[in-house]
């Protein structure tokens, strides 16, 4: 554990708190993509199956349970809550996320480090996480003015990915035999997807106006 990894995890946690806060406090999920949230739920389930048979640390196990719980809570609110579900902008959330799931599964079957059931599912979760933000980014473009909490949620998610890259650089330079090419390549692609959003987020923040993605 290093400071970049810890900061990354805490930023990830904070992003989920911000999103849950928006949904619970405003009783609205306007501008939030249910498809991205469902993809994250799939990512966490397939990656954290190892809760059942591998223990790394109490920290890891607790975080895994928290991430799983928050992902399912968010999906629950967006799909089933009697008030919140009516605020979901279904017509703006039209990305075909099933293609992302299918593509990630095919890639995981082709490129993995060990051809076992759990390893392929874990690799699938890495590929799917890399692209899971796409429905949300497309939805932001279609939403007019993006509220602060939604904008901050996506910004924090992007920060979390950036901090993970710093964590890998740190680990590579300090640990022996630390090498995880699948995770690195996927993570760099994932972070690059935020570049456009970051540009407009910082530009609007600098000019002190409401976030709009052209």
């Amino acid at each position: 554990m290093n400071v970049f990894r810890l900061a990354g995890d805490l930023t990830h946690l904070l992003s989920l708190v911000v999103l849950l806060l928006k949904i619970v406090a405003t009783k609205s999920c306007r501008g939030v993509s249910a498809k991205t949230q469902e993809l994250y739920a799939i990512v966490f389930v397939t990656r954290y199956l190892d809760l059942l048979f591998s223990f790394v640390s109490l920290y890891n196990s607790v975080m895994k349970v928290v991430f799983l719980g928050s992902a399912f809570s968010i999906v629950y609110f967006m799909r089933y809550h009697k008030v919140v579900r009516h605020t979901y902008d279904r017509e703006l959330d039209t990305f075909r996320s099933s293609f992302l799931v299918a593509g990630s599964m095919v890639l995981a079957l082709l490129i993995n480090s060990k051809y076992t059931f759990f390893e392929v599912l874990w690799t699938f979760s890495i590929y799917l996480e890399a692209v899971a933000i796409l429905p949300q980014l497309v939805m932001l473009q279609r939403t007019g003015n993006i509220d602060n909490l939604t904008g901050n949620y996506v910004f924090l998610l992007g920060m979390y990915r950036g901090l993970y890259i710093l964590n890998w650089i740190y680990r590579y330079s300090t640990e022996r035999r630390y090498w995880q090419m699948i995770v690195w390549v996927s993570g760099i692609i994932q972070t690059a997807l935020y570049a456009d959003f970051f540009y407009y987020y910082l530009k609007c923040w600098n000019e002190n106006r409401t976030l709009v993605i052209p």
Partner: peptide
């Protein structure tokens, strides 16, 4: 170098 078999990150 080989892929680490331990998944110790989140």
């Amino acid at each position: 170098n080989s892929q680490s078999s331990v998944h110790d990150e989140l």
